[in-house]
């Protein structure tokens, strides 16, 4: 019977789990293997006798070198980092304050306003970039980091506001009332009591906002044009695909290195992040 149970556990638990992990990690494996594979192997046709797409015996760092030396990849990394950080900070600041107001202050149209903010989040970027392009042009900030720093909050603020609103609502309002009776003004109650408790939520919102800005493609593609202003996703795809020639090795190297900062951010805050998603405040 116990043997049977173990057998069942393999079928119903370990094998699906294994398939899931393989499915999730395979793209990363593919990026790594393509980055390290020499060009000669990369462009070998499938019916070649030594065709082995999943492994290489001749790893090389040529693609990484060419990425770092022949393109402006370092500049792109720096641009992306700067834009993502500033846009995240702006959005987090606005999102925390707006989320608090919507969750706590009783004012007319609070519910409606909350819904309206959410609806703006639902407007697709593929639609919104057209009017935004006009505005960018009018203010003459096209082809500068400001074009993205100021437009990313259009989808980051609604996102942060909603996430924070939910989080603030989960914090018992008695905590704040007690603080106000204890002698704190409303803003002091927020700064000393609510914000410290909301740190996991703020971190989650920040990580999400950072990832969204880091990966953002369409605004970056439209609003930036000179190579030295580009972000990683746009830079890699526009400079390493020339006409119909794909520099697969360098493309994958760019994608791989470009995903490292996000991975670091995630792993660094993972505990808080999970706490933020489950959204519990234990008294």
């Amino acid at each position: 019977m116990i043997e049977g149970a173990r057998w069942k556990k393999w079928i119903w638990f370990y094998m699906p789990l294994g398939a899931f992990i393989v499915g999730l990690l395979f793209p990363f494996y593919w990026m790594v293997i393509t980055t390290l594979r020499p060009d000669g192997e990369l462009y070998r046709p499938w019916n070649h006798p030594q065709y082995s797409p999943f492994w290489t015996w001749n790893p090389t760092l040529d693609h990484v070198k060419s990425l770092l030396q022949e393109t402006l990849f370092n500049q792109w990394m720096w641009n992306t980092m700067l834009i993502a950080m500033v846009a995240t900070l702006i959005s987090l600041f606005c999102g925390v304050i707006a989320g608090y107001a919507l969750a706590r202050l009783r004012f007319r149209w609070a519910g409606l306003l909350g819904t309206a903010i959410f609806v703006t989040y639902l407007v697709p970027q593929t639609l919104l970039f057209i009017p935004l392009a006009e505005i960018i042009r009018d203010y003459r900030i096209g082809d500068t980091p400001w074009a993205l720093i100021l437009t990313y909050p259009t989808f980051l603020i609604p996102f942060c506001t909603w996430l924070m609103m939910g989080y603030f609502k989960a914090i018992p309002k008695e905590l704040e009332e007690c603080a106000r009776i204890d002698g704190a003004a409303r803003w002091q109650a927020m700064v000393y009591i609510i914000l410290p408790i909301a740190v996991p939520g703020i971190l989650s919102a920040g990580i999400f906002a950072f990832t969204l800005s880091w990966n953002e493609f369409i605004y970056a593609l439209v609003f930036l044009s000179s190579p030295e202003q580009k972000t990683v996703p746009v830079g890699v795809t526009s400079e390493l695909i020339r006409g119909d020639v794909f520099f697969w090795g360098s493309l994958m190297a760019g994608a791989l290195i470009g995903s490292i900062p996000v991975a670091i951010v995630y792993s660094f805050f993972v505990e808080h992040y999970v706490a933020g998603m489950t959204g519990s405040v234990k008294g």
Binding site: E174, L175, E177, C178, A184, A185, G283
Partner: peptide, 20 residues
Amino acid sequence: LAPMDRDIAMVFQNYALYPH
């Protein structure tokens, strides 16, 4: 008068202790 200016203290049903 704001709660802070009334010189009162309140004990809540769920205690409302600051968890952090």
